[in-house]
């Protein structure tokens, strides 16, 4: 039986969600708990209220931005595990710059800080790209090593130069550089941290969608990722494409800090990222690297994250990490099985 590629993708996404749910339900059942009760509690505590829904969108915001960056890398078959480091570095630089720019108007300072954060992330992606191109060393190893190095460096600079005494966070950014909360416009969301960054994330997703599927560069990225050797024969320069995709991808990841700095706390705090860099891998893979799909997949994972808090009394919220990993394994294997069958 032949079905269209789009249907194949949808079929594999839906079936891997179902398979994941089945595996997780079984797992919870074996532990002697009632999976339906837990799932019901998660649903009612999250989507059941405006506050919960707002929190989910708030938590989805950085996931969307990071996953869009990852999607560019993954389309080029670059397995960037360095999201955690790139995200932290971008956020740190963004917060520091906004504090330094306190005398500038918003319209100048905000974009400038964003561009420099993008370039910082981009540079951090460029390095593992260069090592891959020049030495043939897998980017998985180098990006993991870079995570450790970047986090130590940030920790050093933060504690020695930028942190408020006896804390692990920077000073507050000037109040005029903070973005509005959605609850200022829609009072029903009162209490939730959902802010304007969510719309920035949607815009980023749309831009990356066009970049990947509708531009020449996007074609080059996909062609290189699909078959590096063949892309060389049709006149592309795989090494160059790898470097560019790593640069843009990591740069986009670095932008995700807007949500925390400008939209939420108003400062950079060490350890704020809470492994979102790794969760985003699952988000991206489940969306089959499609930026529009990423929006929905990010909301699903944000629901798991937020719902995890609600069920913590019954079952440790760390189960969410297990679910993420099962999603990764099932989407990869089910896509392959569906490819073989149809």
């Amino acid at each position: 039986m032949k079905i269209s590629p789009t249907k194949k993708i949808l079929l594999s996404i839906i079936s891997s969600v179902i398979v994941t749910i089945l595996i997780v339900f079984l797992f919870i059942f074996i532990l002697g708990k009632n999976p339906f009760e837990i799932f019901g509690l998660m649903l009612s505590e999250s989507f059941g209220t405006y506050y919960g829904f707002g929190q989910i969108l708030f938590k989805a915001t950085p996931l969307i931005i990071i996953s869009c960056g990852l999607a560019i890398c993954f389309h080029a078959s670059l397995f960037n595990i360095g999201g955690e480091g790139q995200y932290n570095a971008g956020t740190f630089v963004f917060a520091i710059l906004l504090i330094q720019f306190s005398s500038m108007p918003f319209i100048l300072a905000f974009p400038l800080a964003l561009i420099i954060a993008f370039l910082t992330g981009g540079l951090l992606g460029f390095i593992p790209g260069l090592i891959k191109v020049k030495k043939g060393v897998s980017e998985v190893i180098t990006t993991i090593m870079m995570n450790f190095v970047i986090l130590s460096l940030i920790n050093y600079f933060l504690l020695n130069f930028f942190a408020v005494k006896a804390t692990v966070h920077t000073e507050d950014i000037p109040i005029n550089f903070k973005l509005s909360l959605i609850s200022d416009f829609i009072p029903a969301f009162k209490g939730s941290s959902l802010n304007f960054t969510f719309f920035i994330a949607i815009v980023i997703a749309v831009i990356i969608y066009f970049l990947i599927y509708k531009t020449k560069l996007g074609f080059k990225i996909r062609a290189t990722g699909f078959n590096e050797i063949a892309s060389g024969y049709i006149g592309l320069k795989p090494a160059k494409v790898i470097l560019i995709s790593f640069f843009i991808g990591a740069g986009v990841i670095a932008l995700a800090g807007i949500n925390f700095v400008s939209g939420y706390k108003g400062y950079y705090e060490f350890g704020f990222s809470n492994n979102i860099g790794f969760s985003s891998i699952a988000v991206t893979l489940l969306a089959k690297n499609n930026p529009i799909g990423i929006i929905f997949s990010a909301i699903l994972f944000a629901f798991l994250d937020f719902g995890g808090l609600a069920i913590n009394q019954i079952i440790p919220k760390e189960i969410v990490l297990v679910v993420e990993a099962i999603v990764i394994l099932s989407i990869i294997s089910i896509s392959k099985i569906i490819d073989m069958k149809f």
Binding site: F79, V140, I281, V322, E324, I326, I328, L329
Partner: peptide, 14 residues
């Protein structure tokens, strides 16, 4: 590589 990373996350999560 994908499966390896997936397993790493699974084991660390478990």
């Amino acid at each position: 590589i994908l499966i390896g990373v997936g397993l790493n996350l699974l084991i660390a999560g478990l």
